[in-house]
Design a protein around this nucleic acid. Structure first.
Lengths: 340, 340
DNA sequence: TTGTAAGCGTTATCAC
DNA sequence: GTGATAACGCTTACAA
């Protein structure tokens, strides 16, 4: 650590070590291309001076930053937080640094963040979901920024991705609900517009209904943003319908927990009076009473795999695969047969 | 948006607009120092070419990045997520970009992240808590990186900070518990070592006990990392003591919810058989049944104020204040009188 | 108001 | 194995 007031540069190190800047640079970046003795001496000086490479200069000269950017809708939902944690750890192991920003589910903000991260020299980007303006993809291609989509999976997509089939997963969950005997189901969905995950989940339920000989147009849907209170409000609205739904499916666990709380406040028992399901299987799902029936999404594995794929992609090791992960149905106390 | 395959530079814009690079630069950075007509023309070319400034070059030349770094212990706890969201929004309004990384409560990782962010030219840094190696503060001062501490407050501290008094807040909560008649209290604390918030909260309880004529050494403490399951395990351990505690205070809401769940699993009623308290007042606190008695921390306001202070600090508008925010006691169903 | 030109701190291509 | 030296793209005195 330096005691001086100035920031040491490569030049300072070179001068102090009595070598050229090129050699110092080599000691730091390709240590094997410099003889042991020189290296030791140089690294000692680096240590003594507390030298840290100037990132901007390095980025400009090397056109490489070992930085990955991740842009997520929100930090407030545990699913992204947990996935990112795993993503970061895996990246770190590969020598990359992760920089995160969030958009609050706003497309314009996302576009801005993408530009900011690209401008900062991010070698690769992790994006959530596929739906966005084509010009963004064009921009990314133009700048040759490796881009990976996560949290969604779609067969036949061109974009490298690590995700799961939102449609199939929700369809499986809906089938389980129908198999319990439910015929009047309601859906509390996240905002559908511009959110391919929410849209796919919605379609999954409709398909399950059709497949079981029910009319998908009978499915009442309330769209809302992903907040606990909104889940509660939507639940109350749905339960005022006649005839009353016997099962309320929710776009994610957060909405489902809001619905459960409101059910309790309304004096309704879960699952005796009404069944409730979620999606994600975050920690919350097992904290509530009764525990929440939901679809487990492998968030951590997704983060880990995404890191590997993205690094392979930008290092040219992989051409960019589309990887599908499996979800798992979690049948718990919040789902039961309909009241007779 | 450019159709070409090359990234346009300032030079390309200058050439295409028939002006010098200096003028283009001025159009972008100090538009008032260039005549209307030139500006319009230049900006049109910028738009047409899809020019984006190269960040590294800009940082190197201007020694300013309009980037703020935030380093938090974990993204998995809602308290940081929510505070950061507000922090980011306020920063955005002031024209700054936020970059986040997390440490998993590991000091070495934090040091590394600090270096990474500083190397990337962060103009300012938001750090959680005060406890860290002095050499880090020296490094930050040396690099003249504006640094603000959040989530903690300590009278007489030199470091600019926006926080609350963890000690006083927990002491107030403990007093409320004692006032209910509890005499045998247990504490489930976050890891104390290197965590000034956890340490201050612990001390707060001890002081409350002393002040009420109780012996603080009678307070059993279990230290654990902040995870739901750990809260449950610690709860079970504490409840095996003889005589059994009548109230379990927890270092945060997450631990408290874990304790509540375990209580239910053990067949104990809350608060009839045992009272439980948390700290933070995250959403979770009002989702559980009964609702959790806790201390409300103004996370969003803290994020907002931190952004303002940090920007003022690095822009030289403020010398760096120490700001204390107030917490609020939330008495809810999980706290009742001890069993008679 | 605008242009010229000197850095800013690296990395990489050559010679040596 | 090591050392000059030319980029890299931008900002900012200083001149015009």
């Amino acid at each position: 650590m330096s005691d001086g007031k100035t920031i040491p540069t490569l030049d300072d190190v070179a001068r102090a070590a009595g070598v050229s800047t090129a050699t110092v640079s080599r000691c730091l970046n390709t240590p094997d291309r410099v003889v042991e003795k020189t290296r030791t001496k140089v690294l000692a000086v680096v240590e003594a001076l507390g030298y840290t490479p100037n990132f901007g200069a390095r980025a400009m000269a090397a056109k490489r930053t070992y930085t990955i950017g991740a842009i997520i809708p929100t930090m407030e939902n545990a699913i992204f937080a947990r996935g990112l944690q795993a993503f970061q750890e895996a990246l770190h192991a590969r020598g990359y640094t992760l920089l995160v920003s969030s958009t609050g589910y706003q497309a314009e903000v996302e576009a801005e963040q993408i530009r900011a991260l690209v401008a900062r020299g991010a070698d690769g980007l992790l994006l959530i979901g596929r739906a966005r303006d084509p010009s963004i993809y064009a921009f990314l291609r133009n700048r040759s920024v490796a881009t990976l989509i996560a949290w969604t999976f779609e067969a036949g997509s061109q974009q490298p991705a690590v995700g799961f089939d939102n449609h199939a997963a929700m369809k499986a969950l809906a089938s389980a609900v129908i198999d319990q005997g439910h015929r009047r189901i309601g859906l509390i969905s996240g905002t559908l517009d511009g959110n391919d995950r929410a849209t796919a989940r919605h379609a999954g339920i409709r398909d399950a209904l059709t497949e079981h000989g029910l009319d998908p147009d009978d499915l009442p849907v309330i769209e809302t943003s992903y907040e606990v209170e909104n889940g509660g409000a939507a639940f109350e609205t749905l339960m005022q319908r006649t005839p009353r739904p016997t099962a309320i499916m929710c776009g994610n666990d957060v909405l489902a927990v809001g619905a459960m709380k409101r059910a309790r406040d309304m004096g309704l028992r879960v699952p005796e009076d009404v069944s409730i399901t979620g999606f994600d299987d975050i920690e919350l799902a097992r904290i509530v009473t009764p525990e929440l029936t939901t679809m487990r999404v492998p968030h951590q594995e997704m983060g880990r795999r995404a890191a590997e794929e993205l690094v392979n992609l930008l290092e040219g090791t992989s051409p960019g695969a589309v990887i599908e992960l499996d979800c798992a149905l979690k049948l718990r106390g919040s789902l039961g047969p309909p009241p007779s």
